[in-house]
Design a protein around this nucleic acid. Structure first.
Lengths: 244, 244
DNA sequence: ATTGTTTATGTATAAAAAACACTAAATAAG
DNA sequence: CTTATTTAGTGTTTTTTATACATAAACAAT
């Protein structure tokens, strides 16, 4: 297969999206049809692609993200590389790879990236294969070794969000504190006390209240806030605390 | 070149060692000699090797570590993958790769692992190329993109040691609290108050005092301690704290 | 016995985290 | 227009964790 890519090197993107309620992942349908039109199997995979000649890994991830979501300049982070010799050796994987003209015997290593987007900013189903959002808790198995990749991505996200301002990547520019709180709750799988959370927020200089409230909600409208990266960069200090 | 390896995939190991004083890295001498015996250049690189056919990435890293140090069953962790198309394109890299029979034009991606050992457990200079320990602060440039890899490894180590019991990997089985404290100080680049440190230690169930003291030191001998992984595993709890 | 060097130890203060319950503002429904 | 429903918004107390700081004890070397 010659599409100007490196045949044994791919990038897979775990695209996390937040919808005010739950954490979701963007998956592609993987449907294999026989010649007679019957479906041989239909399941889902992460979005990924082989790396192009001359393209860096970061560029490759950004390209894949843009091709499936239309979004560019999105938070993307490399988290792990998957290279088991047998990672593409499940029966369905072989059938699928053959059907798209890849050699199912070739050992392909895949570099994992995760990215964070707000689900409302994505116009889904941009490419040939059907893309859609799945609630993280409702994902059973995935094609190839993608469940393992997803698990590792979630771990990396959880670790990273504890000490870095990632939550804002999942939100629209203007957000409420309830939404912000919900993100920490669903990503870390914890419950947070509302008053303590807001006390903490009020001590953070780069979460700034706007002169604007929610509109058209059938309850008390919430104050809107924004994240100022400028203030964050100007005020951030390193945290050397350790805990065995 | 056919040595049963994958020509465009390598693993590089950043082997950190602690010597009661400083943090060190194990480097290989990279000396290129002309036909007349004159030295064309001489510098240093990390230890690395191409991945073998059929070998997982973890196995590859463990093999490389054992080949250069003689050690097995050592803490090893994958931290990042380096795949820039131009990462092997510096002039010296080309000369070196040619000299060892590799194609200097091939794009090789390298998976980075770091590992932690106690310097006294290593019998250096096990292989053809001369290996030796270098104080982290005294390393200027390295061959290929290995300075960049080293920097990223140190970052990963610093992040990880803040919340995981890695320090013990750098120590002999029996250690003093001063040594343990020193590790946090040199790895994180901070100073720690002795009394507060020891107060913290005394609250940790898996750092256990032995009925044994230092021998043959010309000052008050210190209590020896050990790390119990069993107790650690049995008592560890997840930390959900976050800090924007 | 004196010196040099490192170990070992406790208390007070400040900062951060956790626990906890009611009122306010908007729309929707009757 | 009244009421119901839903989410926003707010303070105080207690507990836990972090910080700052100084002196005596043990051993080896001389």
């Amino acid at each position: 297969m010659n599409d100007n890519t490196i045949s044994n090197l791919s990038v897979d993107c775990v695209i996390f999206g937040f919808d005010s309620e739950k954490l979701n992942v963007l998956l592609l349908e993987r449907k294999l049809e026989a010649e007679n039109g019957e479906t041989v199997f239909c399941d889902h995979t992460l979005v990924g692609h082989h790396v192009r000649v001359g393209e860096t890994l970061d560029e490759s991830a950004a390209r894949i993200l843009e091709e499936t979501t239309g979004l560019s300049n999105i938070y993307l982070e490399q988290f792990y590389t998957f290279g088991n010799p047998d990672r593409l050796k499940k029966p369905r994987a072989k059938l699928w790879l053959e059907s798209i003209g890849r050699n199912p015997e070739e050992r392909v290593i895949s570099v994992g990236y995760f990215s964070l987007v707000n689900v409302n900013s994505v116009h889904v189903s941009y490419t040939e294969r059907h893309a859609s959002w799945f609630n993280l808790n409702e994902i059973e198995d995935l094609g190839f070794d993608h469940k393992e990749i997803l698990n590792k991505a979630l771990e990396a996200l959880q670790t990273k969000i504890k000490t870095n301002p990632l939550a804002f990547e999942l939100l629209p520019q203007k957000f409420t504190l309830s939404h912000l709180q919900k993100i920490y709750e669903v990503v870390l799988g914890i419950e947070i006390d509302k008053r303590n959370f807001r006390k903490k927020v009020s001590q953070v200089p780069y979460i700034v209240p706007l002169k604007e409230k929610q509109q058209k909600v059938s309850h008390k409208p919430a104050q809107l806030y924004m994240f100022s990266r400028d203030i964050f960069e100007a005020t951030k200090k390193k945290d050397f605390n350790f805990s065995f």
